[in-house]
C-alpha cells in the first residue's frame, strides 16, 4: 500500500502567544517547532498500515526549509521518504496550499492508494485542505476520522459525533483526514533516528497563484484578568473549596 501523508511544521506555543512588532507573525525566536497531534496520528496510522500490508509512506510538507528537522522526526518513526515544498517565507492561502500539495503528490512516480491529512492544521485551522486536495486529485474524501480499518481495498472510517460514531466506507484510492485520538503516536527510537538520516528529503520550489485571502494582521484576544483567589492548601483549602462549590451552586 502506497501512502502519502501531509504534515505541517508549526511553532510549539507555551502559555501565551507573542507576536512580532508588526503583528504579521508569531514571534518564534524563543519557540521550538512540532506538528499538530492530528498529523502525528496521520503518520502513525500510515506507518501501521505499511507495517501490516507492505508498501511505503511518503511525507509531503510545505513551509520553511528548516522544517526538514520535523520531517526527519517522522522519518524516524517509520515513514520512508519526504518531499519538502519550500515556500520561501510566503504563507499561501488554503486554495494555493492545496493546489501545491496536490501537484506535488501527482508529480511522484508512485500512485498513492491513500492520502492521509489532518482534519485541520494547528495554526491556520482552515479545515479544508484535505477536501480541496481530494477534488484536485479526483478522489473521494472522508474527514475527521477517529477510527480506521482497511480491508480488501476498502477503508471503514469512524467519526465521532457527540457520544456516537458515524461509520463511512470508501473504496481506495481516497483521501482521509484524521483527528487526534485515532491512535497513540509512537516515539522515535535511536535506531529509527539513525536510519532517518539516510532517507531522502526532496526539496521543491513553488510559485503560488495570487492569494484570494490576504492577512492584514494578527491580534491576540484580550484575556480577562481574573485575579485568582487563593484558597491556601491542605485541610483548610479543602474546606474553603467545598464552600466555593456551595456558593456557585454545584453542591447543595
Amino acid at each position: 500500500m502506497e501512502i502519502a501523508v501531509c504534515i505541517k511544521r508549526v511553532p510549539l506555543l507555551g502559555s501565551a502567544i507573542v507576536l512580532t512588532p508588526d503583528s504579521m507573525a508569531i514571534d518564534t525566536s524563543k519557540l521550538g517547532f512540532g506538528l499538530s497531534p492530528h498529523e502525528e496520528c496521520a503518520v502513525e496510522a500510515a506507518v501501521q498500515l505499511v507495517e501490516a500490508n507492505g508498501g511505503s509512506v511518503t511525507l509531503f510538507s510545505m513551509g520553511h526549509v528548516d522544517g526538514e528537522e520535523q520531517i526527519r522526526e517522522q522519518l524516524a518513526i517509520g515513514a520512508d521518504r519526504a518531499v519538502l515544498i519550500d515556500t520561501n517565507g510566503v504563507e499561501p492561502d488554503p486554495q494555493a496550499a492545496a493546489s501545491a500539495l496536490a501537484e506535488a503528490i501527482s508529480a511522484e512516480d508512485t500512485t498513492f492508494d491513500l492520502v492521509i491529512m489532518g482534519s485541520e492544521s494547528a495554526d491556520y485551522g482552515g479545515s479544508q485542505t484535505g477536501i480541496r486536495v481530494a477534488h484536485k486529485l479526483g478522489l473521494p474524501v472522508v474527514t475527521s476520522v477517529k477510527g480506521l480499518k482497511i480491508e480488501g481495498g476498502v477503508a471503514t472510517c469512524e467519526r465521532a459525533v457527540g457520544s456516537t460514531r458515524e461509520v463511512y466506507t470508501v473504496a481506495l484510492p481516497a483521501v482521509i483526514t484524521v483527528k487526534d485520538g485515532l491512535n497513540i503516536p509512537r516515539y522515535a527510537s535511536v535506531p529509527g533516528r539513525m536510519k532517518a538520516r539516510k532517507k531522502s528529503v526532496d526539496i521543491k520550489q513553488v510559485t503560488f497563484a495570487e492569494p484570494r485571502i490576504t492577512t492584514k494582521k494578527f491580534t491576540i484576544p484580550e484575556r480577562e484578568a481574573k485575579g485568582a483567589t487563593s484558597l491556601g492548601s491542605g485541610d483548610e483549602a479543602a474546606a474553603a473549596l467545598v464552600d466555593v462549590l456551595k456558593q456557585i451552586g454545584v453542591l447543595t
Partner: peptide, 12 residues
C-alpha cells in the same frame, strides 16, 4: 487561528 488563541484580520 490556533483554536481562537489568535485572531487573523484578512481581506477575502
Amino acid at each position: 487561528r490556533w483554536a481562537g488563541n489568535m485572531l487573523e484580520e484578512a481581506v477575502v
